[in-house]
Amino acid sequence: MNVFRLAGDISHLLAIIILLLKIWTSRSCAGISGKSQVMFAITYTARYLDLFTNFISLYNSTMKIIFLGAAYATLYLIYVRFKATYDHNHDTFRVEFLLIPTVILSVLINHDFSPLEILWTFSIYLESVAILPQLFMVSKTGEAESITSHYLFALGSYRALYIINWVYRYYAEGFYDLIAIVAGVVQTVLYCDFFYLYITKGSRANATEMSIEA
């Protein structure tokens, strides 16, 4: 554990809390891609199955349980509690274009051809592209509420901080995981356009909305 990794985890936690609070307090999930949230739930379910087989630390297990719980709580809010506000007409990204290639890739390129390891690899590949339906939705409607932008910024920061963590770990511990690094870089690159807009447009004093031109 190093400071970059911890900051990344906190940023991830913050993103999840921002999203849950936004939906809960506004009683609406307008502008949120349910498809991205479904893929995040699949991601954490596939990755954290090792909760039952591999104990790393109390911190590690606690965070896993929180991330899993929050992912399913988010799905509940979108698809059950505030279903009427779900903007499915704009959430039109074809998820099979992400699910099928990531399943195939995880079977072909993994560290070990075993069920848990393939599921872990699948979760890494799927997470790297899971935000695409959300980014697609934002570019399609041409705007994101500022709170949705903060969510995306926190989520993107989490991955960017993980990259710094990997650079640190490579030099400090000689540790590196090529699958996680390549997928993590892909994931972070997807946020670059958004980061640019968030920093240049989002910092205006009373900006309440930000536009994303595709």
Binding site: N54, M63, F67, N165
Partner: peptide, 10 residues
Amino acid sequence: IEDELGHDEL
């Protein structure tokens, strides 16, 4: 190899 694959990140 079991040890090496104990993914310790979230």
